[in-house]
Simulated scan of single mutants.
Amino acid sequence: MQQPAIVFLLYLMSKNLFIIKQNCMQVQVRKTILKEVRKIGVMLSLEKAKEMIEAWQNQEPEAVKSFLYGRKIFEQLLQVPGCVGIRVFNGIDNNRQQALVFVPVSERNQNILNYSINTTDGMVVVEAPVADGGLKCPTYCPAPATDIESPTWETYIVDQQNGITRKIADLGELISRKKAMEMVEKWQSEEPEGIKSILYGREIFDQLLAVPGCEGIRVFNAYDDNATHTFVFVAVDGRNNNIREFKRLSDGETIKAPIADGGLKCPSYCPNPDSPTPVPGWEDYIINE
């Protein structure tokens, strides 16, 4: 073999080894980050949250600003056996507006679509809840407390689209897997470069729901420091106001309420298609790394 050919062959070998090493490092980093899914997410200061939310609203003035969900929806998702987090998918609803789809996630970073329960007839497989149905701002934006003077209306909100009064804690609804897939696929078809989903650990939801007076969670669209689409979560009280601070029950001290972000985005942290427990009909349309 001539000398140039040997040099070229050695170059290809070294290049392939470098690529393999890089891939191994990426896999290791991914495994380290996903080691404790329940801890994924960070708490933000009010100033940082406002900065991120305003960045979105300044750049996307016609887009949905936030979504309001009652606490019961999150409680149902978190009660699924093996749930250590919630994946929030971007979707598009029947009105061609952005919508969110919430799916419980296992410690393997898999969407939990069904699970087994023990009944008098033996083990039965049931479908896990998948949620949507939040109220969007506009039209359902936070209102000053002075706008709702009567205590009779506390914990309720007027749902103008359906012409009924609804309890804040009950906002949101469970949807079929088929409906969820349709909504998510619409987003991914129309926003091929957009964020597909963001994974958050259950601990941030536990902290938000534990805030005294929390009746729901408002999810804001926002931009992070890399100008990438993300979400900011804020606890909401019975008057549809964001809870900024509360008095700690143990000693009466006033402390700041938690505000959360810091989820893992897909791409790059998409559900693992090579999992030993594949989930047909759900993961196959998600664009992975």
Score class of each variant (00 low, 15 high):
residue 100 L to R: 04
residue 114 N to E: 15
residue 117 I to Y: 14
residue 81 P to I: 07
residue 24 C to Q: 14
residue 43 M to L: 07
residue 75 E to D: 11
residue 108 R to G: 00
residue 109 N to G: 04
residue 87 R to K: 08
residue 104 P to I: 02
residue 89 F to W: 10
residue 46 L to G: 01
residue 69 Y to A: 05
residue 78 L to M: 12
residue 101 V to T: 12
residue 33 I to S: 00
residue 46 L to E: 09
residue 90 N to F: 08
residue 48 K to E: 11
residue 48 K to P: 00
residue 111 N to C: 05
residue 99 A to L: 12
residue 33 I to M: 06
residue 47 E to V: 03
residue 52 M to G: 03
residue 96 R to V: 10
residue 86 I to Y: 01
residue 63 A to E: 15
residue 85 G to H: 02
residue 88 V to G: 01
residue 114 N to D: 15
residue 15 K to H: 09
residue 21 K to P: 00
residue 25 M to S: 13
residue 76 Q to S: 13
residue 78 L to N: 03
residue 48 K to D: 06
residue 11 Y to A: 14
residue 118 N to G: 08
residue 95 N to H: 14
residue 109 N to A: 12
residue 92 I to L: 08
residue 16 N to V: 08
residue 56 W to H: 13
residue 64 V to K: 14
residue 8 F to N: 12
residue 53 I to T: 05
residue 68 L to F: 08
residue 46 L to A: 08
residue 55 A to F: 04
residue 61 P to W: 12
residue 10 L to W: 09
residue 44 L to H: 01
residue 33 I to H: 00
residue 47 E to Q: 07
residue 91 G to I: 09
residue 95 N to A: 12
residue 37 V to K: 00
residue 26 Q to N: 14
residue 59 Q to G: 06
residue 91 G to Y: 07
residue 93 D to W: 08
residue 82 G to I: 02
residue 52 M to H: 10
residue 38 R to P: 00
residue 57 Q to V: 10
residue 13 M to H: 04
residue 114 N to S: 15
residue 16 N to L: 09
residue 98 Q to M: 14
residue 88 V to S: 03
residue 87 R to I: 04
residue 96 R to H: 14
residue 82 G to C: 03
residue 91 G to H: 06
residue 25 M to P: 00
residue 109 N to M: 04
residue 45 S to V: 00
residue 54 E to F: 07
residue 29 V to N: 09
residue 79 Q to C: 09
residue 11 Y to D: 09
residue 82 G to Y: 01
residue 100 L to S: 03
residue 55 A to C: 04
residue 38 R to N: 06
residue 58 N to Y: 07
residue 92 I to W: 04
residue 119 T to G: 11
residue 83 C to W: 04
residue 100 L to H: 05
residue 90 N to Y: 08
residue 49 A to F: 01
residue 72 K to W: 11
residue 6 I to S: 02
residue 17 L to K: 02
residue 65 K to H: 13
residue 94 N to R: 10
residue 109 N to V: 06
residue 81 P to V: 07
residue 24 C to K: 13
residue 114 N to W: 11
residue 12 L to R: 06
residue 30 R to F: 08
residue 116 S to C: 10
residue 116 S to E: 15
residue 73 I to M: 15
residue 104 P to G: 02
residue 59 Q to F: 11
residue 98 Q to T: 14
residue 66 S to T: 08
residue 53 I to Q: 03
residue 32 T to Y: 08
residue 69 Y to N: 04
residue 54 E to C: 07
residue 114 N to V: 06
residue 23 N to R: 11
residue 49 A to C: 00
residue 14 S to D: 07
residue 14 S to N: 07
residue 119 T to C: 11
residue 28 Q to M: 13
residue 68 L to A: 09
residue 76 Q to L: 13
residue 101 V to Y: 03
residue 25 M to A: 14
residue 72 K to H: 12
residue 108 R to H: 05
residue 114 N to I: 06
residue 41 G to D: 02
residue 25 M to H: 11
residue 83 C to E: 06
residue 97 Q to G: 10
residue 18 F to T: 07
residue 117 I to K: 14
residue 48 K to Q: 09
residue 72 K to Y: 13
residue 24 C to A: 15
residue 19 I to Y: 13
residue 98 Q to C: 11
residue 77 L to N: 01
